Simulated scan of single mutants.
Amino acid sequence: MIHPHNSATPLDIAVFHSVNRPATERRAASLIARRSIKGAYQAAWLLNAIACMDLTTLAGDDTPDRVRRLCAKARRPLADHIVAGLGLADMPRTGAVCVYPTMVATAVAALNGTGIPVASVATGFPAGLMPLDLRLAEIRYAVGQGAQEIDIVITRAHVLGGHWSALYDEIAAMKDACGPAHMKAILATGDLATLSNVYAASRIAMQAGADFIKTSTGKEGVNATLPVGLTMCRAIRDHHAATGHIVGFKPAGGMKTAKDALNWQMLMREELGRDWLRPGLFRLGASSMLADIERQLEHHVTGRYAASHRHALA
């Protein structure tokens, strides 16, 4: 279950500050260099990663059958013998399934009765270069189809040009269009040029009411990186200290391995604390990562790695 909605606060650009890139990169590198999780502890962290995963398909050749297959994997992300070997009472499940708006109804039907929410990208994903009224209409369409979470994209030019009021107003309008659905604001950090811009965009998105801030569409040249994640987590921490409002975080794009899942969780644990290590406040936007997690858990249970064809595709 996602955390209760974030409440918008007035625009305040006085909270912006510059971000020291070399220092941020050193801190991010030290987070993963100083930690090594093995054995049963690693298995537990990997199970938590599954629970926090937005299992995603956003391809141009998506079909209803592909979405149904993805939903089946979300319902049963691990093979039965792995679940039994881990001593789990119940089959784990992913945090959500994320699809295009036209696939929302298919996903909602496939996940009926599971409690797994459907997330939809919207607002002209991935570029967001559409008139605002059309972007808002796309949000309303996805919500009307049953999406419980909406991943919106911002206009990068507002950030690059320092048009903070325009960015705030755009995101606030999108939040209003989401209605009961929770909104994740995709900053497309690979397009924002500097970590200072990433920090500023993060603060604006949260001030405008975003329930989550998200790194990337997965379509940029550079997607989720730990220095960017560190910058955004510190923006979340600063926003919480200033307003008392709690906002979630979602890295997405470029994450493929179980090691990536461990690294991102370590970042959350170190920078935001244990409360952010649950699906209500943390999501991993990925699909291929699940295959490697399942492979590592099979090794933990059996002592050997299975061939990739033994695990159902996400």
Rank of each mutant, 00 (worst) to 15 (best):
S216V: 14
S216E: 11
S216G: 09
S216I: 11
T217M: 01
G218D: 03
K219P: 13
E220P: 11
E220Y: 02
E220W: 01
G221H: 02
V222D: 07
V222K: 07
N223M: 09
A224P: 06
A224S: 15
A224Y: 00
A224Q: 01
T225V: 12
T225D: 09
T225C: 05
L226T: 08
P227C: 09
P227H: 11
V228H: 02
T231G: 13
T231V: 12
M232T: 10
C233K: 01
C233A: 15
C233L: 12
R234D: 13
A235M: 10
I236D: 14
I236L: 14
I236F: 05
R237P: 01
R237D: 13
R237F: 01
H239Q: 06
H239A: 04
H240R: 12
H240M: 06
H240S: 04
A241P: 04
A241Q: 14
A242C: 03
T243L: 10
T243D: 14
T243Q: 06
G244Y: 12
V247I: 15
V247K: 00
V247Y: 00
G248R: 02
F249G: 06
F249N: 01
K250E: 04
K250H: 05
P251V: 10
P251E: 11
P251H: 11
P251K: 02
A252P: 04
A252R: 00
G253Q: 01
G253T: 09
G253F: 00
G254M: 05
G254K: 06
G254N: 07
G254E: 14
M255T: 02
M255E: 07
K256P: 10
T257Y: 15
T257V: 04
T257H: 13
A258L: 07
D260R: 00
D260G: 00
A261D: 13
A261P: 11
L262T: 09
L262C: 06
N263E: 15
N263Y: 10
W264H: 10
Q265K: 02
Q265H: 09
Q265V: 06
L267F: 15
L267P: 03
M268L: 14
M268G: 02
R269P: 00
E270L: 00
E271L: 08
L272Q: 12
R274C: 03
R274T: 10
